[in-house]
Simulated scan of single mutants.
Amino acid sequence: MTRARVFTLTLLALVAFAGNSLLCRVALKHTAIDPASFTSVRLVSGALVLWLLARSRAAQAGPAGNWRSALALFAYAVLFSWAYVSLTAATGALLLFGAVQATMIGYGWWMGERLRARQLFGFVLAVTGLIGLLLPGLSAPPLQGSLLMLAAGAAWGIYTLRGKGSGDPTRVTAGNFLRAVVPTAVLSVATLPWASLDARGVAFAIASGALASALGYIVWYAVLPRLKVSTAATAQLSVPMIAALGGIVFLGEAPTLRLVVASAAILGGIACVVMPSESAAARRA
């Protein structure tokens, strides 16, 4: 795979991840679809595309995955949708990404990994940025939506941790999406009295599930082995920024000073934690 192709596929995957925030926000803000219906359509369409891809690649094997990961995936998707009822695309993506990284860093610490001085500084900086973003004030995001998105990020972090070393990413992701359809069906039945659908909202949900989620994950996992750990970690830092730019261009969302400062603190702090030190990089070279 050439460098140009690696770069193109990496950019495509990152745009897809940011696209989930934009598609969900625009659907819940500008169409009649409700959060539960958006979640259901997203997961079902994603499961269908992933199942077809898994079958085409290994007809005799089929999807893999497990129920615990599927429930973490379902929790992420549900919380993500309800959070975007009130959050802007940029704020939601920032909170989501921060919570994902915090969950994974916290798990590493729990398993015995210790932070070096630079990493500890970065962790404190990121937490300070998060607290500053959520402090009460005219420009603070809605607390309920913020807490929902933080919980969504924690669920996605758990899903990511459970997926490490679990086998072929396409088959595993397909199996988890297919299993997540079961609680999704229960959610749809439970929220049927409040269900609201329209063609545009369903189209956005299908795009989120089939394109931004299913194909985005496939592209990312395909290119990930070609990237250095530091490159992959740095690349993911761009997702909230891409979402913010998309929110400005497509949704007319104006970034606040608080969001800009908090973004710099959170993303800069995370970069200090996840980026390997020069000595560590030299040892791997």
Rank of each mutant, 00 (worst) to 15 (best):
A61F: 05
A195H: 12
A180Q: 03
A59V: 06
N176Y: 06
G201N: 03
V26D: 09
R57F: 07
G216N: 08
I131D: 06
T10V: 07
L237Q: 12
R68A: 00
L12T: 15
L73E: 05
C272L: 14
V274E: 11
F80A: 11
A83R: 06
Y107C: 12
A154S: 01
R171Y: 10
C272R: 06
A83T: 09
F123L: 15
G216H: 03
G252D: 04
A262F: 02
G46I: 05
M149N: 09
G175F: 08
V260G: 02
A180T: 07
A13M: 10
S56Q: 14
G163L: 03
T231M: 10
W110I: 07
L251E: 01
V274G: 01
V15C: 13
M1R: 04
L11A: 14
R179D: 09
G62D: 08
A27C: 13
L95R: 10
A4H: 08
A72D: 09
V223W: 02
M111S: 15
V6D: 06
L28G: 00
L48D: 03
A4F: 05
I158S: 08
V273N: 04
G252P: 01
S81M: 12
A180R: 03
A235L: 04
S86E: 13
Y221H: 11
Y76E: 06
A282R: 14
G137Y: 07
V261A: 05
P255N: 03
V181L: 04
M241T: 07
I158H: 02
G129F: 05
P276F: 04
M275W: 15
R57V: 07
G19E: 03
A64Q: 15
G268F: 07
A281G: 14
S279R: 15
V124M: 13
P225E: 02
L138N: 12
T128V: 15
V182C: 04
C272A: 15
L120Q: 09
S208G: 02
L120N: 00
A281C: 11
R258I: 06
F250H: 00
M275G: 03
I270Y: 07
L267N: 08
L87W: 08
G137P: 01
C24N: 12
L178S: 00
A243Q: 05
C272S: 10
L237T: 12
R284Y: 13
P169W: 11
V172I: 10
S166E: 14
W67P: 07
S146E: 02
L211E: 00
L150I: 08
A117L: 12
R3Q: 11
A102R: 06
S37K: 00
L79A: 10
L50V: 04
A155P: 03
P193G: 05
A233Y: 05
V172M: 10
G252L: 08
R118H: 13
Q119W: 00
L125K: 06
S238D: 07
S277R: 09
